[in-house]
Nucleic acid binder design. Structure first.
Lengths: 203, 203
DNA sequence: AACCAACTTGGTCAAACGTCCAACTGCGAC
DNA sequence: GTCGCAGTTGGACGTTTGACCAAGTTGGTT
């Protein structure tokens, strides 16, 4: 008998649920399958969560809190904007290739939440877009450019394109085509970059 | 007691299943919910389909057969390539806005099939990409241009971007942002267009 | 009219499901 | 020490699920 605090048990159940969903899908994530994955008795489930819906709602928030787009860019002097973006998008594709189940979990939960909790999906996508915005800012800094269109608009577009990249790679598993597509995307966004004046210049 | 042929009953059950999934999601599409939607007794289900999985697999093929991207472009003389593309993408967005349930059904079935029948997903996406290819060809004809990159590559990218547009609009329901994004996409693809010589020219 | 194959139907079955609960156990406060 | 509460547990409940079947019905063929 392991004795855990309420929060510890809740956290372990959430992790176990994410693993089960990633491996077998949301439909297979029954209360029994989740507690089996977490190596707990069935009764432990409803001690922590009021219902299965409660658990699923918590997963959306749990995933939202995690940063998906962290540390894409690798600093490199004298790289063009398109190169920086290509490298960043490539890093995301490698992440996708290495653990596709993670994105499939996200898809499963998002499609479920679209019907049962649309607000949660909006919040999740908002943080997703914020991460895209941060990446674009960082890319601009690395490449020494500024964006010629509102950063929020470009961030919306980038997040949308990443959704598409994810869905199409998961559907086709065609990494070569995905990389060709990435170069097209990088060029598309680089079209909205312009060199920034050196800081030695006057205001 | 309605007396139907095997194919008629099968077709009605497929349509009923698509309606149920669109309205309440794949998880709610139980055998009983489907036959209730089709106004049939429960026994009729397993007379036509060997199992529920059999029905779901049939839905993937059923949806794949339907043309999603038909008649996007409206003929218009003296329109630039970007204008033609913008108009086509706008038409798709209007379709998405008018019946989002249709795309949610597709999403539900696709995510399910990713785990249980990856080949079916690849086939579905292949027809999707073929439709994107046809649209790009038609757009080139309307705008009087040719593409400066292989049509297959551009088609893969367009299909991917459409996936992203669909997913991000379903998540945010932000039609204004989606339309701004569409103009960015249209410009991106138009960058790979070049005017075609008049047919009066030699060779 | 007799017949057969195709079709229809309501009921039944075991399994799996989400939820709940009463009894039990161990830890910390007093 | 002992008391109380937070944590733990296995079993049980009623419902829903996918699947199955035997009996009934219909329409066309002979």
């Amino acid at each position: 008998m392991r004795r855990l605090s309420f929060e510890e048990r809740r956290s372990e159940l959430l992790d176990a649920a994410v693993r089960v969903i990633g491996r077998e899908g949301l439909a297979a994530a029954t209360t029994r399958a989740i507690v089996a994955e977490a190596d707990m008795p069935l009764g432990a489930f409803h001690y922590v969560f009021a219902s299965r819906d409660d658990l699923i709602a918590a997963i959306v928030e749990h995933i939202t809190e995690q940063e998906r787009l962290a540390a894409w860019m690798d600093a490199d002097t004298d790289a063009t904007c398109a190169e920086v973006l290509t490298r960043g998008l490539d890093a995301y594709l490698r992440l996708l290739e290495s653990e596709p189940q993670r994105e499939m979990t996200l898809l499963d939960v998002a499609t479920h939440a679209m019907r049962h909790d649309p607000d949660a999906v909006q919040r999740q996508w908002a943080t997703y877009r914020a991460a895209a915005r941060a990446s674009l800012s960082y890319a601009a800094e690395l490449a020494g450019i500024t964006w010629t269109r509102p950063l929020d608009e470009l961030a919306w577009s980038l997040a949308s394109c990443l959704d598409g990249l994810t869905l199409s790679w998961l559907s086709t598993r065609d990494s070569d085509a995905a990389r060709r597509h990435i170069r097209l995307l990088a060029d598309a966004f680089a079209a909205y970059a312009t060199p920034v004046k050196e800081t030695t210049d006057a205001d």
